[in-house]
Structures are given as C-alpha cells and as structure tokens.
C-alpha cells in the first residue's frame, strides 16, 4: 500500500498532536442547516420535448360598476334604464355617462319593456365561461323612440323561429346576479 503523504501546510497553525486516536477514513454525515423543505407538490407535465407544463392562473377582481351602477341596481327592481343626452336628447339604449355625439352629460331614461329584434344569432360554441350554456341566442334589441341598441340574451325561440323585427318583451331574473343578464328577452307572443 502506498504511504499517505500529508499535504504541505502553509499555515502557521500548530500541528495536531500525534497522540490523538486515528479515525477510519470515509465520509461524514451532513446535516444542512439551510435547506428548502420538500413538498409533495408536483407538476402536470403534458410533454417533455419541449417541456410543457400546466400553469394555473386565477384572479378575483374588485369590480366597480361605478357610474353604471344604477343600471344594474335597476335590473334587480325590474327597471330597464338607458341614457338620454341632456343637451341633444339622443337616446342610448345601453347607458353611458356622456353623450357620444355632443359630449354632454346624460341622465337616466326608463326604457320601454317591449322592443324588436334588430339582429340576432344562435351560438353553438362560445367562450369557455359560457360554453356550458350553449346553444344560446344573442340579440341586439331596438326600442321605439331610442336611437341605439341593447345586447341581451333571447330565450323561448330557436334559430328557426327568430326573425329580424320580431317583437320581444323584457323579463327580469327574480334573484338578481347584478349582471347584464338580469334582464333577458322573450318573444312577445310567448310572454
């Protein structure tokens, strides 16, 4: 066996006493003082070349309806509110704080609860949030004496039955969700 040669020491520290008992050579156990704790949290891996993993993302917003609040509060009371320009008297079926034509402030306007289908569609697919509600009908509703339209759901009629110009009536959810879908429209002859 080759004789172990002690490395030359450059330090001036005194040599350890030769009388200390010899320890067998080998690794010592290590107990880290700084170490990230392991968890059982893993990754959802779709494939490895390239590496594609699932990355979850979720948010709750603190959404203020701000100047549009009376519209949503009105729906809960069975009232449909639009806007009328205080200067040029243009009437908006979808409310807005200021007139798009002249810039003046608007005031709230009670919309009629009967209108007509200006245009419509039936959605068989949709955004993920609405996919489970398909098929559903969307309609832009026109009202007598009002210059612009309102987007709403139309129920009680199928793709084959809906027509441009069809009379419709507003209905309100009994238990408000404070969403624009608190009002919806049904064919006038089925109301």
């Amino acid at each position: 066996m080759a004789k172990k040669v002690a490395p030359k020491r450059k330090s001036k520290a005194p040599r350890k006493s030769a009388s200390k008992p010899q320890r067998p050579a080998g690794p010592k156990p290590v107990y880290d003082k700084v170490r990230l704790p392991e968890t059982d949290q893993g990754a959802t891996v779709f494939r490895t070349d390239p590496l594609i993993v699932k990355d979850h993302y979720e948010i709750d917003y603190i959404h203020s309806y701000a100047e549009d609040s009376p519209f949503f509060l009105g729906l809960a009371q069975g009232k449909l509110l639009g806007s009328e320009c205080s200067a040029c008297h243009y009437r908006f079926a979808t409310p807005r704080a200021y007139c798009m034509r002249c810039g003046a402030a608007t005031r709230w306007l009670d919309l009629p609860l009967e209108g007509r289908v200006h245009t419509w569609t039936t959605c068989y697919f949709g955004s993920e949030a609405f996919l489970k509600e398909t098929p559903f009908n969307l309609a832009l509703v026109e009202f007598d004496g009002v210059n612009t339209l309102l987007l709403a759901r139309l129920i009680g009629a199928t793709e084959k039955e809906i027509r441009v110009g069809m009379p419709v009536k507003a209905r309100f959810r009994r238990l408000a969700q404070f969403k624009p879908t608190d009002v919806y429209f049904v064919p006038a002859d089925k109301a």
Partner: peptide
C-alpha cells in the same frame, strides 16, 4: 365592454354573426 357585452355571452363569432344577419336582412 366587460360591463355590458362580455357577461351577456362574450364571443366574437357571435358578434360577427349578428352583424351579418343584419347585413343579410
């Protein structure tokens, strides 16, 4: 519009479908 349009069933194909239904009319 996330107050008045998106929550009703926000879907751009739906919006364009409504436009062309009116165009056809």
């Amino acid at each position: 519009d996330t107050n008045f349009d998106y929550p009703v069933g926000g879907f751009y194909t739906g919006y364009y479908a409504m436009m062309v239904v009116r165009h056809m009319h």
